[in-house]
Design a protein around this nucleic acid. Structure first.
Lengths: 174, 174
DNA sequence: CAGTCGTTTCACAAAGTTGTGAAGACTGTG
DNA sequence: CACAGTCTTCACAACTTTGTGAAACGACTG
């Protein structure tokens, strides 16, 4: 019975398989969610395309899956490799490169090393000065906000470490 | 000696005062930093304008300080009040409203209750399903990313509480 | 060292965002 | 109940962003 469409009705232990359509939905949704927080749109699409592939992909394969031009892929991989979120793997005996994920996953570093709040803190410093420190209602208010950002940044700085500790504790330490 | 411009040269304990130009720079910089992470531009400008004012401001005053139209202010305050980041205070004996900040500062709730990672997690759930769970390299990879987001979200969920605890410990508890 | 395949660059077009001006709506006042 | 002051809505214009096509580039191959 070679009819694949019937498989799901059978009771035998079919190996789970990927659902390309659903995978693509995931890629696009996740990419959009990232784009909404300022991540470049195409870079996000490429990143999740590679993430959802079992093997490293060529630029052409990425372009096919997303139905975008080679130029768009080129720009996106440049962006991603710049931040180490993607690694370029030259293919022996071919002019193509393949793009895969680095050994240590991008998300940990991206979240923790962004320095987003450091930026907020720096700008808030200027605000506190300009508002005469804590001597005015506005100055006090901005100083408090700054303190909060300092706290959040501290938490984020230690987050990577806590994550690794937790992973190790739950048996993922390798 | 009524010449204010000379004050800074004196050695007497001058009260610190606000530097309007520097305040405006702060407002615009902070607003841009927020815009870069997806916060509506004008809403951010209005938010920080109100934050850096000692008293609640009218819509007209906000418009003046930012040199933008009443329409732009209207849209921005609507956005901000919707999320409780700004409160509208009707002025007795006047048709104007004033806009001020809520008692509990917006940043704590905004950062902690955004549910940004919850969204990522939901989308990643779909990805894990589509990729046949942990049975494929890609599925495992996406599942790991999801785990990380779950961890981050947990940390963020408890962040507000930890912040309040810290504030209380350092004498800001009121 | 010419040919070919894959990648990159660049000017431009399509699409999306953002704020404006003007008109409209609402509300209290004379 | 007409008027004036304030806020809101809406169509549009300016600006920004994003991705395309075409051409240039670079590197391996024969």
């Amino acid at each position: 019975m070679p009819d694949d469409a019937e498989e799901s009705r059978m009771i035998t232990a079919d190996p789970p398989r990927r659902n390309d359509e659903a995978v693509h939905l995931f890629v696009e949704r996740m990419a959009m969610a990232f784009a909404e927080v300022g991540f470049p749109r195409m870079a996000a699409r490429v990143l999740f395309t590679v993430m959802s592939a079992d093997d490293a992909l060529t630029a052409a394969e990425i372009g096919e899956r997303l139905e975008v031009s080679a130029a768009a892929v080129s720009g996106a991989v440049r962006y991603l490799t710049q931040f180490g979120m993607l690694v370029r793997e030259p293919v022996k005996g071919s002019r193509r490169d393949r793009y895969g994920l680095p050994d240590n996953p991008w998300y940990e570093g991206t979240i923790t090393k962004t320095g987003l709040y450091k930026n907020f803190i720096d700008i808030a410093d200027g605000g506190v000065d300009a508002l005469a420190g804590g001597s005015t209602p506005a100055g006090e208010r901005v100083a408090e906000m700054r303190e909060f950002f300092v706290f959040v940044q501290e938490e984020i700085d230690s987050l990577g470490e806590r994550w690794r500790a937790r992973r190790a504790a739950t048996g993922h330490g390798g």
